[in-house]
C-alpha cells in the first residue's frame, strides 16, 4: 500500500502500539451492532459542541499528496470549518434534507467493529468497511461522544486516497440538540419531486447508490445519491459545455460514447461530460473507480421535445445576436 507521507512512521507506530495495547480482538457481531457504531457517528457531530483542528490529506490523480489543516468549531447543529484557510470559512447547518432514507450500509459493505486505537488520548472503536472482500474504508469513532475522529478511504488497490482526522479536540460536550434545523429565514434549497425532462434520475446508480433527493441549483438540477456511507451528486443542465469553460487540468477519458473530463479534489472525484445537448457533472466522495462506475451508469438524457428544441434554438439565435 502506498502510504501517505504525513501518516508515516511515527504515527503508524503510535497507532500500531495503541492497537496492540488495546488488543485487536474483533467484537462479536451482534445483529446490526457493528453498523450501529457508524450510525451513531453519523449524527454525533450535530449533537456536540467542540473546538478542534482537522487535517485532510489526499492524493490527486497524478499521485501527488496534499495536506491541509483547518480549525473546526461545532455548536450543535451548526459547524464552522476552515477559518484561516485560503478561502472563506464554511458554515454548515444541516444539509439539504432528503426525501428518501439512505440505504443500510450493510447492504453494500461488510461492516466490522473492533476496539480501536487511542486517538488524541481517547478510546475509540475502529469500524472497518469491506467491499468485495477488500478494505475500502475505515473509521475511528470516539467511544465517549460518538464523534468520528478519523476516517480513511482506500482505492481498489488498497492505496490510501484520503484521510480526514482530528489533530486537536477541546471543550467537547453535548448540546442537547438532536437534529439540524434551519434557522428562521435561512435559505432552503428548493427540493424537486420530479426531475424535469430531459434529465433522468434513476432510483439506483452502479455501486449501490440510491437516490435520496433532487434539488434545483440555479440553472442546474442536482440529484443526490447515497450508499449509506458515501454520497454522490449528479448535476445536469441544458447546453453543451465549452471545454474552455472547464477547469484546467484533469484527465480526459471515454465514458460510453462520449468524451469526459475527470478531476480529483480534496473530497473526492468530479467527472463531467456533454451529451444530447446537456452537460452532466458527477461529484462523489468515493474512490475514483467507484465514482467513475456510477458516472457510467447515469442514463442518457431524453431527447428534447419539439417545444424544448424550439426554445433552445431560439435561445441559441438570441445568443448569436447579442
Amino acid at each position: 500500500m502506498r502510504a501517505l507521507r504525513p501518516l508515516a512512521r511515527s504515527r503508524l507506530a503510535t497507532v500500531t502500539l495503541a492497537t496492540l495495547m488495546v488488543g485487536l480482538v474483533t467484537t462479536p457481531c451482534r445483529a446490526g451492532g457493528d453498523a450501529e457504531v457508524l450510525r451513531r457517528a453519523q449524527a454525533a457531530s450535530s449533537r456536540m459542541a467542540f473546538v478542534g483542528t482537522v487535517v485532510v490529506r489526499w492524493v490527486d490523480g497524478d499521485g501527488r499528496q496534499h495536506e491541509e489543516s483547518m480549525p473546526v468549531k461545532g455548536k450543535g447543529a451548526e459547524l464552522e470549518l476552515g477559518v484561516g484557510v485560503k478561502q472563506p470559512a464554511l458554515t454548515w447547518s444541516g444539509g439539504v434534507g432528503t426525501t428518501r432514507t439512505a440505504p443500510d450500509p450493510t447492504v453494500k459493505y461488510q461492516v466490522r467493529a473492533q476496539p480501536g486505537p487511542l486517538v488524541l488520548g481517547r478510546p475509540t472503536t475502529r469500524v472497518l468497511l469491506d467491499l468485495d472482500g477488500r478494505l475500502t474504508e475505515e473509521a475511528a469513532v470516539d467511544d465517549g461522544s460518538g464523534l468520528l475522529l478519523r476516517r480513511q478511504v482506500y482505492d481498489s488497490r488498497g492505496d490510501t486516497v484520503r484521510v480526514v482526522e482530528f489533530t486537536s479536540l477541546e471543550n467537547l460536550r453535548p448540546t442537547g440538540a438532536t437534529a439540524a434545523h434551519p434557522r428562521k429565514g435561512s435559505w432552503t434549497v428548493p427540493s424537486l419531486d420530479e426531475v424535469p425532462r430531459p434529465f433522468r434520475a434513476p432510483d439506483q446508480l452502479a455501486g449501490g447508490y440510491a437516490r435520496l433527493g433532487a434539488y434545483r441549483r440555479g440553472p442546474a438540477v442536482q440529484v443526490l445519491y447515497g450508499d449509506g456511507v458515501r454520497t454522490l451528486s449528479v448535476f445536469s443542465q441544458l447546453g453543451e459545455a465549452d471545454p474552455s469553460d472547464l477547469p484546467a487540468g484533469g484527465e480526459r477519458l471515454v465514458l460510453g460514447a462520449t468524451q469526459a473530463r475527470r478531476w480529483t479534489w480534496a473530497g473526492g472525484q468530479v467527472v463531467t461530460w456533454s451529451q444530447r445537448g446537456t452537460t452532466i457533472t458527477v461529484v462523489g466522495d468515493g474512490p475514483p473507480a467507484e465514482v467513475l462506475a456510477a458516472a457510467r451508469s447515469v442514463p442518457e438524457p431524453s431527447r428534447l421535445g419539439v417545444l424544448a428544441r424550439l426554445r433552445q434554438a431560439s435561445r441559441s439565435i438570441v445568443r448569436r445576436l447579442v
Binding site: 453519523q42 450535530s46 459547524l79 439539504v96 464523534l147 480526514v164 435520496l212
Partner: peptide, 8 residues
Amino acid sequence: SSPGPDAV
C-alpha cells in the same frame, strides 16, 4: 448537501 456519514 451530504447528509452523512458525519458532518465533520
